[in-house]
Design a protein around this nucleic acid. Structure first.
Lengths: 229, 229
DNA sequence: ACAAAAGTGTTATCCATACACCCATGT
DNA sequence: ACATGGGTGTATGGATAACACTTTTGT
């Protein structure tokens, strides 16, 4: 987990763990996949970067905890959230036994003004292949999130959560290319996406480019299984 | 989680959760996919069935907790274990806030003598489509496990963990058919499996059947990504 | 001899891939 | 007029899917 709050010392005598959530937050910025990180200002990990996270409250579900911490630390409203993996190695947090349920979060809210929580030095987007030194086991957590995202791009309509409500097909393609780190053939990509019947044309076009692109939207916001790759 | 132990009452005042593990244990018995369940003898869920599980110790990782509880409750040695999903809804356990990290467990150890722990009334294998009334959210947990198993059959060599070290190709096919609940074409299945180069012939044959089947083994015990279906 | 499960090939269809040029607009 | 990204079709090869009979053993 990623808070710098001290754990209540008396808790360690009970043979139970503290439960936290962590979030791997991805967004596309200028056609590139980025992760959101916070700079730690205190204690052993001072100067390193961490993914957003924090403890769960007794009366809140995991997803509610994710929403709460994201809203507080970053100001994001309702992004896509899916549980990723639970990290629980005994010594993953030097302050005590912390079991953290990591979540994958996708947002298209890219130019949202980021809010730095008071206990962090900074908050920033980083390219996934140019990560700064990370605290805890957060490198593992981010890589697990990236693998999940890669896998799910191939068989679901999850890509929509990295895009605004309407988008050009070339934007969608650049989501795929950026996440998978490889180029795709434009004609084959468009043929495949259109044949899957998961997007539909709007009557709008992009303004202020060269030749204006047709704007599309996803037909269903619901998660759907489709063979894309 | 699945124990009937009372939670220490004083813990509930601290705003933290108890962490448990649960296990969805699958095995093939007489060509059919079965789940292992324990009968609860006390408290609100008396008479219902539960999957094996229990609390984690402060100095043990999740997988160690899984091995410990399985060994104690069932006598299984070293099965295949993979983390599945974390169930943490506020009211999933009437005794308090219990966050349970569910695991998928596969074993070929089918005629192992099952040991009933003292606090359980019975321990038994059930067909996955003939489940008895279940305690907690264990129906959800089992279904999550089944979905994971189905998905992974399609793109990994995970099926080996449901089979003994050597097996006939028809045994392997019946794993697929039973887990996926559909028939597969024998010739196409064998052609596909052999072309993937994940199994190799041994020089043994099945004894005491009609025409003896050639026995195969998996080449690699390591998890491998292969397009099977 | 017969019952039971093991083993074996070919064909047709579908899908994935590779590939190059014209179009609409802004400057 | 030119620079920029948008948009379009076809041909080939490989994978998948459908399909039925012979073989080996035990009884």
């Amino acid at each position: 987990m990623a808070t710098n709050k001290k754990l209540p010392a008396h808790l360690t005598q009970y043979q139970h763990a503290i439960v936290a959530i962590d979030t791997v937050v991805f967004s596309m910025i200028k056609g590139e996949l980025m992760v959101l990180l916070l700079k730690i200002t205190r204690d052993v990990f001072k100067g390193k970067w961490a993914i957003p996270g924090g403890l769960i409250l007794p009366q809140e579900n995991l997803e509610q905890a994710v929403e709460r911490h994201l809203l507080y630390k970053t100001g994001f409203k309702k992004p896509y959230i899916e549980q990723l993996y639970t990290f629980a190695d005994v010594n993953r947090d030097p302050r005590g036994r912390v079991v953290s349920v990591a979540h994958l979060v996708l947002t298209a809210d890219q130019d949202h003004k980021l809010v730095t929580g008071s206990e962090y030095g900074d908050i920033k987007w980083f390219k996934v292949n140019e990560l700064p030194p990370l605290a805890y086991d957060h490198k593992d957590v981010i890589m697990t999130g990236l693998e999940r995202l890669r896998a799910k791009l191939g068989y679901t309509n999850i890509a929509q959560h990295l895009l605004p409500p309407t988008f050009a097909l070339s934007d969608l393609q650049s989501v795929y290319e950026s996440v998978l780190s490889r180029k795709l053939d434009k004609r084959n990509f468009r043929k495949k996406i259109l044949s899957l019947d998961i997007v539909e044309k709007t009557d709008k076009k992009i303004v202020g480019s060269f030749r204006p692109a047709e704007l599309y939207r996803f037909k269903s916001k619901k998660s759907r299984i489709v063979e894309i790759l």
